[in-house]
Simulated assay, not measured.
Amino acid sequence: MRYVLLDKASNEVILLARLLLMVLFVLFGWDKLTDFSGTVGYMAGAGLPVPTLAAAVVVLMEFFVGLAIALGFCTRPLALLLALYTLGTALIGHHYWTMAGADRMANMVNFYKNIAIIGGLLLLCVTGPGRYSIDRR
């Protein structure tokens, strides 16, 4: 009874949650896509073995998968895939346990933000995209 308003607006809340979760991925994925050579350079600087391939995977996951989830296309499997990708980026890109000082704190914050995003993606994987999605059409 207490949650009647939320129950009535659950599809709208799921849409808002889906869009808010994907804002980060789509915006940063777009930046990486439009400056692909810079993205490759960053991957090389991070020590990844095949930086061009790594950059392509990052753009695919962040921009294209993020956009697909925002639109509600193949939401459940892509949310799970993006959760795994986000775990990988947390472990590879924010390994705070190997750092000290300000770098340690900044990377710890980003690591746990990734963990929180994974939680949202897993919840989206379980709940599905809601009514306002390509999946529901």
Rank of each mutant, 00 (worst) to 15 (best):
L84A: 11
I14S: 00
F111S: 01
M105C: 00
G88I: 01
P77A: 10
C74S: 07
A70N: 04
L21S: 08
Y42W: 10
D135G: 04
H95F: 13
F63P: 12
Y112I: 01
N11S: 12
V26G: 09
L82I: 02
I115K: 00
L6C: 11
E62I: 11
D31N: 13
F36C: 07
L81N: 04
K113R: 03
R131I: 12
D31Y: 09
L48Y: 14
T39R: 04
I134T: 08
V65I: 15
Y96S: 06
A55G: 15
L81G: 05
L6Q: 14
R76W: 06
G41Q: 10
L121H: 00
P49A: 14
D103N: 05
R131G: 13
H95P: 06
I69F: 02
A102S: 08
V57K: 15
L19G: 02
G101L: 08
W97I: 01
M99I: 04
P49I: 12
L122D: 12
P77L: 10
A102N: 08
N114D: 03
R104Q: 07
V109F: 02
P77I: 05
A9L: 12
G93R: 00
M22Q: 04
W97D: 03
L53Y: 14
M61A: 15
G93C: 02
S37D: 10
V126R: 15
P77V: 06
A44N: 04
L80P: 10
G47E: 12
N114R: 01
E12Y: 11
A55Q: 15
L122T: 11
N110G: 01
D7V: 09
R104P: 03
P49T: 11
V50G: 12
A55T: 15
L78C: 04
L6I: 12
F63D: 08
N114C: 03
K32D: 06
D103L: 04
S37N: 10
V23G: 03
A46R: 13
V109D: 01
A56D: 06
L60F: 15
Y112R: 01
L87C: 09
A68N: 07
R18M: 07
G120M: 02
A56Q: 13
G41R: 08
R76S: 10
G128Q: 04
A106P: 02
L123M: 15
